[in-house]
Design a protein around this nucleic acid. Sequence first.
DNA 1: AATCTCATTCTTGTATACAAAAAATCATTC
DNA 2: GAATGATTTTTTGTATACAAGAATGAGATT
Lengths: 222, 222
Amino acid sequence: MATSRANEILPVLEQEIVTGTLKPGTRLDETILAEKFGVSRTPIREALNRLSASGLVEIRPRRGAIVAAISVQDLMNMFEVMADLEALCARLAARRITPPEKAALRAAHESCHALSGSEDFDEYYERNLYLHDLLYKASHNAFLEKQVCELRRRLSPHRRLQVRIPGRILASSNEHGALVEAVVTGDAALAEKLTRDHVTIQGERFTDFLSTLPSHYLQASA
Amino acid sequence: MATSRANEILPVLEQEIVTGTLKPGTRLDETILAEKFGVSRTPIREALNRLSASGLVEIRPRRGAIVAAISVQDLMNMFEVMADLEALCARLAARRITPPEKAALRAAHESCHALSGSEDFDEYYERNLYLHDLLYKASHNAFLEKQVCELRRRLSPHRRLQVRIPGRILASSNEHGALVEAVVTGDAALAEKLTRDHVTIQGERFTDFLSTLPSHYLQASA
DNA sequence: AATCTCATTCTTGTATACAAAAAATCATTC
DNA sequence: GAATGATTTTTTGTATACAAGAATGAGATT
């Protein structure tokens, strides 16, 4: 590709972190990574710096880089902001969504809903992501869209913490149905409220789940 | 003594961009900067990369870095998000603020209010920043606080766009008074509403209008 | 006169070499 | 046998050298 080496390495590392191949706390040795990608340390350092800025990697001066290990407190804080930004997206989308975007949103919801009876969490998660992407786009605020997506990426390494309750897919899909309808009919206040409720429900489940956490997850981040 | 050269250079460059010494659109030649700081290009590149991630500079592949020139549309988008995050801060602060934080908030407001009759925009701006910092802190969400501060820094190079209307200081200070009172008395809904009204600069209708415009109508400011 | 092409030059991106700090290892001492 | 201190080793941070793509300018062509 016409892009530079660092630009090729960056998304690969990011993907490995996001998918959990590289787990939080893992040490990122520059020499080893350079060898692995067949480049010198220079583009590796550049990629690590960029990942550090986006929050996926933590760099301690003179002490190397590790995959960012977020404390539970940080996670809760980030969920709080995420909920608010998603609610903002919903409110704006309800006011600004275009006819073609409405059609795409409905189609995406149908695609999600088709799985509502199943327990295929991974596939539902994928289609769910796409539905939310459409909502972000419909806000017609590119900056907001980018912020929300980046925050979501940053949270995704800890996705394994999500609770997988039987029947939750159906409930989630129903909530989405109401939200999509509110956005399509232009009810901004309702769209915002439904989003908050939707995320809050997940948040409460998340909070409940915290009590069952392994203790090593409770250490504070430096 | 700072840990590394790049860590020394970064805040200097950032300050020059934020204060407007380096204006949006200015080219940032690596060799010239290296000479200016008496280092090699390596730490310069590292600093530029970090600034790029925080949004203060824009790096075009193989074409060098410039101080980020934000379009009017981007600016409106960022203000829209800023207003929402500040409102979230206010809501959380109203619920979580501690007694000592209440005292500090009242004192900061008094300090601002003392200038309410004057037209000293710069000094008012400084004290106003501090007041808002206290509000962010009172939200007791460190991640949110960091996000809001970073967004504010990112907007600050374009501060010249702020309208300086005679008598605006007094109006602003009165709005702050009501907001501080709402936070201190724990009225989260009111604090949120007052903040939205306060921060939203030109009204949602105008923002709506701008956001639906094709981007080529609004060129970058430089 | 304007534009297109090609060569030169300048700048960015990468590799390698070197310096300095932190980690690890080993030996000595209590 | 544990702890501490010095030495070795490893790893990060910086400088310099080199390669490749983009900007620039001169000359030719229409």
